[in-house]
């Protein structure tokens, strides 16, 4: 079994109009190289599902800035003024969810279920009347599972079967999205032979992974960003 493939071939599987989950919370866990290849290949009318919009000029913000994204399903885009401008000028449709609800919608799809009941935001303006449900005298809100055609993920380490290990806070949405998309494309800077990663250290088992892209090097975007270092 060998899931490794070239970055060109992996991204060429994605058609215009696709619904794509993208890992990452801020920069950690964001598959910058896969995103850049998607930018280069020119797919359009994309729906992206990501915790945030990265920062202006990097990651999925590049796709937004080139008008390639129709719709963004997210939790918070406060760190990206450009994305806010695109939203405010109606060039980008943005759908906001509470962060844990987005995670749980993805987790639910990844577990092969179709929805769950919650009380988060029950009485707030984010709840539509048709989502309300009463059961044994209590009121709940129905949240549907969220699937995607593709997931683009970043793993710190992998083996060529596609077993994945994440690092630090770069885990975030990656293992959830790995389970919730029909086609899962993962980039990693460190690919090992099967057996070299210990079974009890694997975060995402290879059954969920379709294509693995081994990065020859990590670009500037994966490094520490000076503007986030307080002096």
């Amino acid at each position: 079994m060998n899931k490794t493939t070239s970055i060109e071939e992996a991204i060429a599987a994605i058609p215009s109009g696709a619904v794509i989950m993208v890992g990452g919370f801020g920069s950690p866990g964001t598959p910058f190289s896969l995103i850049d290849e998607l930018l280069r290949q020119g797919q359009r009318n994309l729906t992206l599902i990501k915790n945030d919009a990265n920062e202006a000029g990097i990651g999925i913000s590049k796709l937004i800035e080139q008008g390639r994204v129709d719709r963004l399903i997210t939790t918070h885009i406060g760190l990206n003024k450009t994305a806010i401008e695109w939203m405010n000028s109606q060039r980008l449709v943005v759908e906001f969810h509470p962060q844990g609800m987005l995670a749980e919608k993805i987790r639910t799809a990844g577990a092969g279920s179709y929805g769950f009941l919650t009380d988060i935001g029950l009485h707030s303006e984010i709840t539509r009347p048709e989502q309300l449900l009463e059961w044994q005298g209590k009121q709940y809100k129905m949240e549907m599972a969220l699937k995607a055609d593709f997931a683009l993920l970043h793993a710190a380490r992998a083996d060529r079967f596609g077993n994945l290990i994440y690092e630090g806070s770069a885990m975030n949405f990656n293992p959830l999205m790995a389970m919730a998309a029909d086609q899962v494309i993962v980039e990693t800077p460190a690919c090992f032979e099967p057996g070299e990663l210990l079974p009890n250290q694997i975060h995402t088992p290879c059954a969920f992974v379709d294509r693995l892209v081994v990065l020859p090097q990590l670009t500037q975007e994966y490094r520490i960003m000076e503007h986030h270092v307080r002096h």
């Binding site: 939790t75 509470p98 935001g121 984010i126």
Partner: peptide, 14 residues
């Protein structure tokens, strides 16, 4: 100003 909900709603409620 509406940058999104983030984690605020769940933290505040729970």
């Amino acid at each position: 100003f509406s940058p999104g909900i983030g984690g605020a709603m769940e933290l505040a409620q729970k």
